[in-house]
Design a protein around this nucleic acid. Sequence first.
DNA 1: GCACGCCAGGACAGCGCTACCTTAGTGACT
DNA 2: AGTCACTAAGGTAGCGCTGTCCTGGCGTGC
Lengths: 343, 343
Amino acid sequence: MTSSKNDKNTRTTGRPTLNEVARLAGVSPITASRALRGISSVAIELAEKVRVAAADLNYVVNPAARALASAQSHSVVVLVPSLSNLLFIDTLEAIHAVLRPKGFEVLIGNFHYSRDEEENLLRNYMAYQPRGLLLTGFDRSESSRRMIETSNVPCVYMMELDAAEGLNCVGFSQLKAGETAARHLISRGRRRLAYIGAQLDQRTLLRGEGYRRALQEAGLYNPDLEVLTPRPSSVGLGGELFLQLLASHPQVDAIFFGNDDLAQGALLEAARTGIKIPEQIAVLGFNDLPSSEFMVPRLSSIRTPREAIGRRAAEQMLTLMAGNKVANPVQDMGFELMVRESS
Amino acid sequence: MTSSKNDKNTRTTGRPTLNEVARLAGVSPITASRALRGISSVAIELAEKVRVAAADLNYVVNPAARALASAQSHSVVVLVPSLSNLLFIDTLEAIHAVLRPKGFEVLIGNFHYSRDEEENLLRNYMAYQPRGLLLTGFDRSESSRRMIETSNVPCVYMMELDAAEGLNCVGFSQLKAGETAARHLISRGRRRLAYIGAQLDQRTLLRGEGYRRALQEAGLYNPDLEVLTPRPSSVGLGGELFLQLLASHPQVDAIFFGNDDLAQGALLEAARTGIKIPEQIAVLGFNDLPSSEFMVPRLSSIRTPREAIGRRAAEQMLTLMAGNKVANPVQDMGFELMVRESS
DNA sequence: GCACGCCAGGACAGCGCTACCTTAGTGACT
DNA sequence: AGTCACTAAGGTAGCGCTGTCCTGGCGTGC
């Protein structure tokens, strides 16, 4: 019953500590710490000794202790609006691929296209004292914005571009993408062009805006042919809206869809109901999902650099976290029009 | 230059601490800690006072300090083999939905169907002293297995069932699902049944095994009609394998696909090449992705309870983390045959 | 040859929280 | 009335690491 000093204290984790590594290497704990963090002021032989000792003991740092002592974590928070289509998965994977090898932990938050949910996630994750913030777009609540600003945590915005002073962003011009879509369809001789968008996030709206502008320029704009719904984008919804639009406006001869899944749904309903694509209606999608090129007919789409955006954003974040200024804070990763059979 | 005691120490986070909350509430720090953790031994009025003080100061716990002091984190690690199809997204979302409100942080690892990668992720994430492990299936490297066992971290296995002693698992019988698929196609009068599977993960193999058994039972098994490839499942691959199988075995009259995306690809190629589905060939998919019911023809599939598995697994995990035994460690969540036009 | 600056390495303290033990106060039972 | 169990609250110490001094030894320049 008498608890002696040698009792195994249950509060410890049982794993080797930096102290033990240091003892084994014959150096002080702080030197071991510096050696393992790759701080250059440690002699090469000493650092090597420490590394060997750490390997021997199978030592892994305790991230909690490190975070507490240094008042900063090694985690980076990524907030995306959705995981239900593959768009953001590619981006997330790329971010992981860049940050994980550098020892950063990636915390993913899905805010389901909801400003409130984003704000909540932000508030929650701020507790972890993240080293960086990777956010999607610029559309968010005022308090989210304030939280980001006052936190002083470096932040990179993905998917959209914004020339605002001091913002780091990696994306492409959604507006130009919409324009490109319109010009392509017009160049195919189409004159009664529609736009079908769902979700109504900032980017969908911007694409619609670009599309509209190009149509207005060409004198072809007809507000009746703009179908927008806040419902989440899906194959089923695409088919539904497609049939709906055709029922009310049978003269439509081209449709730009704000998302490939919508366009795929339209192609499927067209096949089901015998509507000829592209003869009767040209169809253009957006994002170029992997399955789009296998549709019947093969879906034309605008390919977006999702993987590249994630990679570049993560690289910018590394620069920022190292305390450096990013040379080129606004990175336009472009997009590519993939012309296939449907247009 | 003289640094007085009142200098803002840069090592602090600048955020309010539990001490300040306690002072404001007029209690000791430890009482504040207990109150905020909902430990019952704190008087209700005191707890309320603490809660008010915390809200006033906008206090959020420092997870690093908490993890360090208690030698355990609040994070749960989830390892999934893929994020590139929607399968695991539903499960992940459900897990999040259960664990986040309880204050747990969910760390997601994607091991891309690679045992080595899973082992690496496991090793890495173990450093965070996770409170729980949610893993996919039972197929993993010996060292992964050892790591899990020696870590003593509670673990729930998802997607498959296993009656092994002491394992907590939530899933459904992949074997029975394969059998159900075969019986359904046979009941449709088909006699030359093929199986097309990709990825060759344990679950795909088990489904194939169930399918094979049912065919053998019916005296219809033909090993030539089993197409297996380690390539990752995708719509494009499905179309490719479908055409390949038909070229070598034109007499096939039904195909069970190990995954809906494969089946979708087959339907699309069938449409492209004029093969009549289901007249010439009945097609059955697996997983019932949201888009499957909109295919032309509408794809029959086996609906898997992905969301329910995630939810239930997370609930089991909560029980385990609370230190309790799970009443029913093996949870069969079943599956549902969705008969549509393609079969 | 001496003062100076510089650098590798170490001592020390503390990050914010919670486990453990102790104490004061309450009621129940003999 | 006195003892005992029990509960609520606090004191103390320390989780494992790193920031901030500080020391001692070396090289450099006049």
